[in-house]
């Protein structure tokens, strides 16, 4: 029983990162109706940011969030201006499809650039406290991963608060619900788009940092993370950041259970099968409130 419980604990810890990864994708998709399939590559780049800050400057990976998040915000603004700001001009159906294609091209380019700049090697940040383990009732809880989960929750909670209380947070929610009505209320919808996209990119950067410290990164992890985020978004639906986070935890647990039931190599397959079935069962209802 204990090995299974141990797997569940690890699954839950990883699930927190799924939730964080999905939150950014969900925010961008919910507000801009833009499906950025390069989200996983943005996570990958965030991870490299933290990795190099650690390798070259000796900056603690958790502290590097203070650098990576603002940098990712700026990167988000640039990406919006250069690419996705053009996509949002199209009517909604074309918009989703074009964003998928643009995101796809961006994903390829970013991945190739990362291979070129950082080589295809797998990397991870090994701090002095990397091996620290908390023992709870016979279960080993890696401290770094626990801290990552806590930070992910903190970030999601902060985002939730910002969307609930901040003036522009409300504007973002209003835009997500009905952009035309938002415009008629006096909200600069384009700016709400820009903010939501930049926030989504910042979340990707944060997620990448946490991935690089508790787990590992390489230029090719993007697709996998995009898929994880998509699975969570499909399962959790749009509209609630906290709901998305819980969706991430559920996916982490589900993977652990399926790894126990079908063997480790199949942990991904189960999530994808569920994803496909849910998607087909509710082909329109999912993303529509």
């Amino acid at each position: 029983m204990t090995p299974f419980l141990q797997q569940l604990v690890l699954g839950l810890l990883l699930g927190g990162l799924y939730g964080l990864a999905a939150a950014g994708l969900s925010l961008v998709f919910g507000v801009l109706k833009v499906l950025n399939v390069a989200h996983g590559q943005l996570i990958m780049l965030g991870g490299y940011g933290a990795f190099w800050l650690f390798a070259l400057r000796g900056l603690d990976p958790f502290a590097s969030l203070a650098v990576v998040i603002p940098a990712a915000l700026v990167a988000g603004v640039i990406l919006y201006w250069a690419l996705f700001g053009w996509v949002v001009r199209a009517p909604e159906e074309t918009r989703v499809k074009n964003s998928l294609l643009v995101g796809f091209g961006l994903a390829l380019a970013l991945e190739a650039a990362a291979v070129r700049l950082f080589t295809a090697d797998e990397r991870s940040i090994t701090t002095g406290y990397a091996g620290a383990v908390l023992s709870v009732g016979g279960l080993a809880v890696p401290v770094v991963r626990l801290a990552s989960l806590a930070l992910a929750l903190l970030l999601i909670g902060g985002l939730h608060l910002a969307l609930a209380r901040w003036r522009w947070g409300r504007a973002i929610r209003a835009t997500a619900e009905d952009w035309e009505a938002a415009l008629l209320t006096g909200i600069d919808v384009r700016r709400a788009y820009l903010l939501a996209f930049a926030l989504g990119t910042a979340l990707a950067g944060a997620a990448g940092t946490l991935v690089s410290v508790g787990y590992s990164i390489s230029p090719s992890i993007g697709l996998e993370w995009t898929l994880k985020a998509l699975v969570v978004v499909v399962l959790a639906g749009l509209g609630s950041m906290l709901g998305t986070f819980v969706g991430g935890l559920v996916l982490g647990l589900a993977e652990a259970v399926s790894a126990a039931a079908f063997g480790g190599p199949y942990r991904e397959v189960v999530g994808l099968v569920v994803f496909f079935v849910v998607l087909v069962a509710r082909p329109r209802g999912l993303f529509v409130r």
């Binding site: 003036r167 209003a174 619900e177 035309e180 938002a182 008629l184 909200i187």
Partner: peptide, 29 residues
């Protein structure tokens, strides 16, 4: 809107997932 023209659109177009007060405050954005 800032120039002083406000509209009550057809079908009301409220932000249904937000509270009444949030809707009103957005009017003064």
């Amino acid at each position: 809107v800032e120039r002083g023209i406000a509209v009550v659109p057809e079908g009301r177009r409220l932000f249904g997932a937000m509270t009444v007060e949030e809707n009103l405050e957005l009017g003064a954005f």
